[in-house]
Design a protein around this nucleic acid. Structure first.
Lengths: 185, 185
DNA sequence: ATGCTCTTTTGACATTAGTCAAAAACAGGA
DNA sequence: TCCTGTTTTTGACTAATGTCAAAAGAGCAT
């Protein structure tokens, strides 16, 4: 699954593909388990083979879910993973999941070994950056209703798999407001 | 200036530094000139030696300024530069400025030539990503007043150089609201 | 100083979204 | 089926922010 994903989406030589694949280790976790707790340093990047999870942090005593991960996503606490500083967020499983983990050290070694793997990650960052830019624009300049409609169009499956409370906080609105938006449509 | 900046902030071999530097060309523009118009493809990355500019797009007939660039920033329309699709945003000079431009083709050639330059850009993306993540969290989960106070603390110079209307839209609030927040503090 | 333009502030009112509390709907286990 | 805990919806009220219009202030050329 992971190997297929790499093969299909990333233009790597056979050798680099195999070496990359060998660096991942399988992790299996249950619903409500934590992949990362606030305050810990996130030392791994994960590929999510099956399942769902969320990143959230606490603001004014409330949980703010700021991203979800699903099948075929690479996930981590980017801030902590990049800086190796303690995480401000928690990563929690929303469903029982199968993941594949690679440590930051292994990844760095791969960068030295294969220019093409570092390129791949550079390009992956470009894509992540663009997506985050879109979300940023949505967050700051679109109304709650528009954000909800956008989510409906681009990732409707989220609405079926995730409790409304998490989705409301992901959209940056209260659960009551989300409920009212839905009843209006 | 550009060369110094590269020397000071990026760990490159002398050879790579020199080659990189040679790929930039100076651009001088006046206040209110445009570096990029909506609909055009952005083919260059710029280093801003002196001056100030903003990226904005039109939403519901209004200009939305979503970023500013100042001295020593690398700027471009990231979305268009990365995807080579027509830009949705405009980049406009807020002051007469001195810039240095490098084309996407030249940069790609440098990536092939020097692994270390591609690494540098990969790392730069990590930094940009983290900053954008912070702005995103601010936009979605902080109040207008908190966003203004944050700007005051982290980049007070913006407030002296940029008209309030642009700043309000950068903060995602109306100019009137910004004016009222300021009078309260 | 005068007039012109652009920027910033103020006022009155409308709209959006948040909060708190309670009711309704749903889901899973005994 | 009934109970229990969780999720979702509804109601009443409040707070934050937006909109439109007008006034005040600043900068600059004449």
């Amino acid at each position: 699954m992971l190997l297929n994903h790499i093969r299909n989406y990333y233009p790597l030589s056979e050798e680099a593909q195999a070496t990359l694949y060998d660096c991942f280790e399988q992790v299996i976790l249950n619903k409500n388990d934590y992949l990362l707790h606030e305050g810990k340093i996130c030392r791994h990047l994960y590929f999510l083979e099956k399942g769902a999870l969320r990143g959230y942090y606490i603001l004014d005593g409330k949980e703010i879910t700021h991203w979800f991960g699903f099948e075929q996503d690479f996930v981590t606490s980017f801030h902590s993973f990049i800086t190796q500083a303690p995480a401000v967020e928690n990563i929690q499983l929303l469903e029982g999941s199968i993941l594949w983990a690679i440590s930051k050290e292994k990844l760095s070694r791969l960068f030295n070994q294969y220019h093409e793997i570092e390129r791949l990650v550079r390009i992956a960052y470009e894509k992540y950056y663009i997506r985050l830019e879109e979300r940023f624009v949505n967050a700051q300049f679109k109304s709650a209703t528009e954000r909800y409609e956008g989510l409906l169009q681009t990732r409707p499956y989220i609405l079926e798999r995730i409790p409304l409370g998490h989705i409301a906080s992901y959209l940056g609105i209260s659960q009551e407001t989300l409920s009212r938006i839905r009843s209006r449509l």
